[in-house]
Design a protein around this nucleic acid. Structure first.
Lengths: 192, 192
DNA sequence: CTAATACCATACGCCTGAGTATGGTAAGCC
DNA sequence: GGCTTACCATACTCAGGCGTATGGTATTAG
């Protein structure tokens, strides 16, 4: 009798814990990703956890890797298919506000830079993203050095925006105030 | 016998605790500002603390207010005396790397946005700084709306830079790589 | 049917930090 | 001298999280 349809939720897997961990991080930050709260929220006990993972650190590590993979797919999926480099750059900004959960996780990771397991992830992600950006600028005719500087600049704008968002100092993502600002940023930082 | 010369350190004041709290925040973040570690580092015990403050929250609040005052003085002292608005804007960026401790505290506060006592401080500080920036842009002939957008943009660049710094992804502040980047930012974002 | 394996519950010990209670000491009035 | 006030130490309680130990159940292998 193959598992045609699981009547109830059978048993949890490591992946379930990782997903739940990312949910909690998105909501309350890395620091709040503790295993007992996680277990409570999943309606289960610690006993389960320590079967799947050896420690809290191990879970965090795996959860972050999972998130990073997801982010890599996002990056190449949404930016790789756009031919014209200018549209690629614009879509970089437009993507703020989509993929809410993934974004929220990233924001919390930024807040937890400095954490030994978070830092390397952030470094790799930033490196990848800035690479994509600088390549796009180069395709638009910029010299490599200038393109790298411009990529760093535009990525900083993005990070700063997230910070302001965490401080509740960014206009509602669907307002025209927001649209006007985005427009301004694009006009200022992306050559025609 | 007046205290001609204190033989040993006499007694601590509330201000001492606040300063020590800011030091700890600068080094290890808001979350690490716990009272027992603080007491240990000061070579004293909790008993003292609860004489000066009613709770950990109270200390945090006072320490943040102290920092904010310091930051206000900094802002008007270093930016208020510069006549030409363009130099004022440039000095905004150049000031990264000076006032190391105050800056480190700010960086950690950014990482702790979301904390109920930190958030309002960050909001006020951001508001003040962006105001200064937008005024400078207006003095250079920009229309108010544009100036506000530009101020937000440039402040975002600043915040993003701090984030990258926390991730160890910013070139050494005294390298020529850094100088070149700053140059690029100024050329891109500050009109002649 | 039996035994192993996978998954989970219960119950513990440990540590760290918040906050309280209470007692000690030194300096300054009176 | 005695008393008060400012400051600090000691010694608790309480909560919450980490990790361990151990035993229970359900599924599957053989």
């Amino acid at each position: 009798m193959k598992p045609a349809q699981k009547v109830e939720r059978a048993t949890l897997s490591a992946a379930d814990w990782e997903r739940a961990a990312l949910d909690l991080i998105a909501e309350q930050g890395v620091q709040a990703m503790a295993i007992e709260p996680l277990a409570r929220r999943m309606g289960i006990t610690k006993g389960s956890f320590y079967w799947h993972f050896s420690s809290r650190e191990a879970l965090l590590e795996q959860a972050l890797l999972r998130w990073e993979k997801h982010d890599i797919r996002n990056l190449s999926a949404s930016l790789g298919e756009i031919d014209h480099p200018r549209d690629r750059l614009i879509s970089f900004f437009r993507r703020v506000g989509k993929e809410k959960l993934t974004h929220k996780v990233f924001s919390e990771l930024c807040a937890a830079a400095g954490h030994p397991h978070v830092e390397p992830v952030l470094e790799r992600v930033a490196e990848r993203r800035m690479k994509h950006l600088s390549v796009a600028f180069e395709e638009m005719g910029m010299e490599p050095d200038l393109a790298r500087h411009q990529a760093r600049l535009i990525y900083s704008v993005y990070l700063g925006f997230l910070q302001l968002q965490r401080q509740q100092q960014t206009p509602s993502l669907s307002s025209e105030e927001f649209e006007a600002y985005i427009e301004h940023v694009i006009n200022t930082l992306i050559p025609a």
